[in-house]
Write a protein that binds this DNA or RNA. Structure first.
Lengths: 349, 349
DNA sequence: GCTTAGCACTCAATGCATTCGAGTGCTAAC
DNA sequence: GTTAGCACTCGAATGCATTGAGTGCTAAGC
């Protein structure tokens, strides 16, 4: 028997009214206000009785005895799971998002940054985007380019997605034919190998095979390892942190600072986004549901974005627990969807 | 006759005392406090008289009649120009900075990010770094790499400095010998040409010369233009924005928000840093000395960093007008110096 | 038996008067 | 020129009464 059936219809409507009202006004909601603003056909006294019940079962709480009620964390959870109906976003808005992303299509970083910006602007909360990572990603090409007698540029192309480069000093100058040979050999060994399989041992092996060039290759292959590691670590792009300051619950600098600190710790946010990506479905974390102490006053709505059905990243929005869940869920889902589509055009090569 | 000579020694000492005290306590300073804390050998009454003079000539001001004095903007300016003595930084600290930067030496972005972080941590204010830009920068190498039958990777190496890449779709597959020919030709034409001279016209010319490959080259060279433009635009890395919230003057969210908005507008900060770079010397902007309205409550200390005597970028720290100027100036100068040294090892190839 | 009007009660917020004290400016004495 | 003394100012803190939004409970009504 789900929690759903444990609450009668009228209680649900009242919980909904309290939550909706509190989300928009940020003020505790009283029985009179509900009777006036929502046409429930019952008197304040009845509403009071119901509210008392809702409080007893933990869905509502009272900041102090002569104030109205506000949803508890449990209340928000119930609201999110069983009550709210996600809003749909207007077609113009969809088009607008699409166009803004299309405009950045030529570079991955630009797209993720723009996505974060769009999310922040639409939601008016803080937004973040976990850049695409793919377990299935494979090395598409590795190219050494002689830039200078002592300098080789290592270029890595990964599919799906990104290009990384690194300059390496070398002791001896390689002739272009030698370089071509090395390049051809490296590509024959590494091409289409999943990144997860490219480890120190494989690279050692290759160095041994090409031992005539080992002094050049050592530095190069070390760079390869570093480059791959470096991209493996999750890159999170953030935007709209300032929006936090507009929320009344963060008016006192102390609480605002807690949130900023939270956002500054990369791994908290990126961990959450990685979870979302792995779970493959939209995720709503309310207040202390998260283990992170500074999250108690916040909620996060996050969703994965997919390429050909495979989640390759995630986006999210962080706001106060009194978050406009319905709106944010709609936005996050929509943006995730568009982002996936744009990226699939860009990355699947 | 400079402002310096217009103020007698005792007044200077008092202005210094007020400023030092206010900078550390953030509380208006009274005559008694000065008499007690600073050994000036004069009584509070005398100090009061001097303070009244200093107020009349605009160096001090009073929040209200029964409060102590605080430095006016003019007072800070005088303090910065004629009174404060820059602190020196301990050797351990220098070593620490050096080591942190050395650790990131392999990548430009890492170095600038770490620099911003160091600056923010040492100063406890918001910090930013303008990435190296150089008018004298020249294209060192341009390389096309065939990644895939329909995909060419354009790699640009710029000296001093950075590597940029971009993927371009092509209609026909080029044989490796053709690609080698194009590469060789492009490099012969473009190598060591200053970026400022590489424009659409030059690239058009080259396309014409290689017209047999024009359909491939058009897209490629267009990408080159975009890549160069993209890097020309100033990249500013920021850190420590949260520190702003620790300053008592930004306790009310309103003022904090103004500062965050200011920091969010890239061009304001980057403009300031560009000015500093072009001026080639340390720069201190106090409150309304800047034209930007939201700067009125802030000060910025910025300094260029140089490679072989040539300024190629700048770093800066933003805090309240009640900023610890002496300390910040020392830090900014020191970090700028180290950054220049590290970069000259990295970039001048 | 549920609903609701009525009422006593609670408590944060607001306003107001009072006090406190840090700090000043002025005057007069040194 | 310096300084002690003193009256004065005004923000901040404190205390106290008032207000009003909102509750819980009881008893009457449908």
């Amino acid at each position: 028997m789900s929690a759903y059936s444990l609450m009668d219809h009228r209680k649900k409507r009242i919980l909904q009214a309290v939550t909706d009202d509190y989300i928009t006004t940020a003020e505790p909601v009283g029985s009179r206000a509900i009777a006036r603003r929502y046409d429930l056909g019952i008197s304040p006294a009845t509403i009071r009785n119901e509210m008392a019940d809702l409080e007893e079962s933990g869905y509502l709480e009272q900041p102090h005895v002569s104030a109205g009620r506000i949803p508890s964390q449990k209340g928000y959870r119930f609201y999110v799971d069983f009550i709210m109906q996600t809003k749909s976003v207007s077609d113009e808005e969809k088009l607008h998002i699409r166009r803004r992303l299309e405009d950045r299509k030529r570079e991955l970083d630009l797209v993720t940054e723009e996505t974060a910006r769009i999310l922040a602007q639409l939601s008016n909360y803080a937004a973040f985007v976990l850049s695409p990572v793919s377990r299935a990603a494979a090395l598409k090409r590795l190219e050494l380019v002689q830039v200078d007698p002592q300098l080789v540029l290592v270029v890595l192309v990964v599919d799906p997605g990104f290009v990384r480069t690194h300059l390496v000093m070398t002791e001896r100058h390689l002739k272009s034919r030698q370089l071509a040979y090395i390049n051809a050999y490296l590509n024959s060994r590494l091409r289409d190998i999943p990144l997860s399989k490219i480890g120190v041992s494989l690279l050692k092996e290759i160095t041994a095979e090409l031992k005539e060039y080992s002094n050049v290759l050592e530095a190069t292959l070390e760079a390869v390892v570093q480059l791959l590691e470096c991209k493996q670590e999750e890159a999170v792009v953030t935007d709209g942190q300032v929006n936090i300051l507009e929320q009344p619950e963060f008016r006192e600098v102390e609480s605002a600072k807690r949130v900023f600190d939270l956002l500054a710790e990369d791994d908290t946010v990126s961990g959450l986004l990685l979870d979302t990506m792995n779970a493959g479905s939209i995720k709503i974390v309310i207040g202390r549901e998260s283990s992170h102490p500074n999250m108690d006053i916040c909620s996060v709505v996050s969703a994965p974005y997919v390429i050909e059905g495979v989640p390759i990243g995630a986006i999210g929005v962080l706001g106060p627990t009194r978050m406009h869940y319905a709106k944010v869920v709609a936005i996050v889902e929509l943006v995730a969807c568009h982002l996936g589509e744009i990226l699939s055009k860009m990355l699947v090569v």
